[in-house]
Nucleic acid binder design. Structure first.
Lengths: 315, 315
DNA sequence: CCCTCGATTAATGCTTCCCTTAAGTTGTAC
DNA sequence: GTACAACTTAAGGGAAGCATTAATCGAGGG
């Protein structure tokens, strides 16, 4: 399976014809057909079949198409990325968990970028807790911010605490929550689907079953749903402070809460760490960073905004 | 540039040594070194340089690494994807804009999946408005849900209206908003960074400059910030209804609002459309779907939750 | 200063890609 | 049924990938 073959496949699938794909590539039809044949042999699937009005995808072909398309796209991107690397700001990738991504990551990187005189081009990526260590160890991220990382993948990584907070249960101020917390309805952000998160650790301790959990796209949405009284949510106390102050939400006293937790910054050891990673690691220890983590509550200008990217890794 | 070369590069970068990479691949050192040399020649960059304690990345190398890593990962995924395609549920990819992704996409797909007897494996991807048409046209998405799609890329696509709503300006009930809207502080979700979105269309019409805009990670967060009185936000009236009912927010009467808008569903024309795409397209016209779009407000069970994925395309 | 380890280069052969032209084969249309 | 268009197969050749062994280069350590 080569990139050339994948490119041919993608073009045929999109244009619906070998002839057109060959024309687009500037080669003969058999060249394209042969590339297809090689892929079919490799995968043991016809991928594309001849039909009235063009070639149509088989089940296997339709799975392959988005993957192949992305590979081809990345191939083009690779060239551009290396070409533009010189004379351009250093790049830094921060991997974070979903709770941090939502409120803290953008303002933090915004502050860091400003402080570094715009000479560092930083961006954040979301990952599950269990993947943070792997991302850093494999240099797919320069720095990770999240819970303390333990386990095999974290061996040899440099992991230090940077911020303490406490997790509380919140709900509508007008509702009473009775009975065992295990039977409440829990409205959570995606951290509720991350087995390594502090949130899920708390819920497991309370004996909440999966059926009692509903996942919302983000914490604010989960809190908003909790504010309407249909269930309870989990929040870092200092992040939910505005909602508490406005009495949209109230803390629900619960066994095991407030649960104190600590964010750690994880990097490669000093001798293998990039300069930019070093800067960010030090920045996270400064009062300015502490301030942003404590009360991040602000947006960023459109020009600085970067959509969050989910990061995954080859297993 | 081949996948084998990229794989060698990734391993050397991660392991910090040609020798270890060669051992991991089960080949001789020169084989790896040669692959590296080919990449260096291709990109005109050393990519990795010898240093005490291992090989270190150049600026270009550090740009290439994440891209190469993903390409290699996708290569492995491609095999698995095709192999597992047969005897497994049909797959459907829905491309949506950020506003829809936040509230509507998950409940909608959840309802659709249930209705189709779990025989369709649906997932949603975020994209900018301008990319929706391209994604559908290139079969990277089966269905798009968003504004009406016009322009070259939408030529030959089937685009029909499915839902009407109206856009309003919201702010804290306790604040007065005076003067020209162009000078207010606007707190927006990522749609505020999408040139094709209805939100930005409204703001342009009001003459709001980029400096007056702050982007938050999601609508709920932007509304929450607006509720604290530091600025105003934009919302679909029916989606912000809970916050209005609880008096956390109030509608701010503004020139040009309420602005009516209409979501459209876009697919390939009938003869090129997959069965699953057809089902979803019809489902979106049913009262059940309408109901979900009107008041989606609920989470999904952890087992069904899928993190949103940003989709991009090769230009 | 010399030795050693690790990266690279050189020289070589086998295999695979990838393009070509020419000759089928298949499916649709009239 | 025949014609046509489009996909596929066949055969051949040049280029590049990818592996080998052997030799060379360069930095650290004794």
């Amino acid at each position: 399976m080569t990139l050339g073959q994948l490119n041919a496949f993608v073009l045929v699938a999109r244009l619906g014809s070998v002839t057109d794909a060959a024309k687009a590539l500037g080669v003969s039809e058999p060249a394209v057909s042969q590339a297809l044949a090689a892929l079919r042999l490799h995968h043991g699937d016809k991928l594309l079949t001849k039909r009235a009005g063009g070639m149509t995808l088989t089940a296997g072909g339709s799975r392959l198409l988005p993957i192949a398309s992305q590979m081809v796209a990345l191939g083009a991107e690779a060239d551009a990325a290396v070409r533009q690397a010189n004379g351009v700001a250093a790049r830094l990738q921060l991997a974070v968990t979903s709770e941090i991504a939502e409120f803290v990551a953008n303002p933090l990187l915004e502050a860091f970028t400003r402080r570094s005189g715009n000479s560092i081009d930083a961006s954040a990526g979301l990952a599950r807790t269990t993947e943070l260590a792997v991302l850093v160890a494999n240099r797919l991220a320069d720095v990770a911010l999240g819970p303390e990382l333990t386990g095999d993948a974290a061996k040899g990584l440099d992991c230090v605490p940077v911020f303490r907070g406490s997790l509380v249960v919140v709900g509508s101020p007008n509702s009473r929550h009775q009975g065992s917390p295990a039977h409440w309805r829990w409205l959570l952000d995606p951290a509720g689907a991350d087995p390594g998160s502090d949130t899920l650790r708390l819920l497991r301790r309370l004996g909440v079953p999966d059926e009692g959990i509903q996942i919302f796209p983000n914490q604010t949405a989960a809190w908003s749903a909790a504010a309407s009284g249909v269930g309870v949510s989990v929040a870092l106390e200092h992040l939910v402070a505005p909602q508490l102050r406005r009495h949209e939400l109230a803390v629900v006293p619960t066994r095991g809460t407030p649960m104190s937790l600590c964010w750690h910054v994880t990097t490669l050891p000093t001798d293998r760490r990039s300069g930019a990673a070093n800067s960010l690691r030090h920045f996270l220890g400064t009062p300015a960073a502490m301030q942003v983590m404590r009360s991040p509550g602000s947006g960023v200008p459109p020009s600085r905004f970067r959509p969050p990217v989910y990061v995954t890794i080859w297993s």
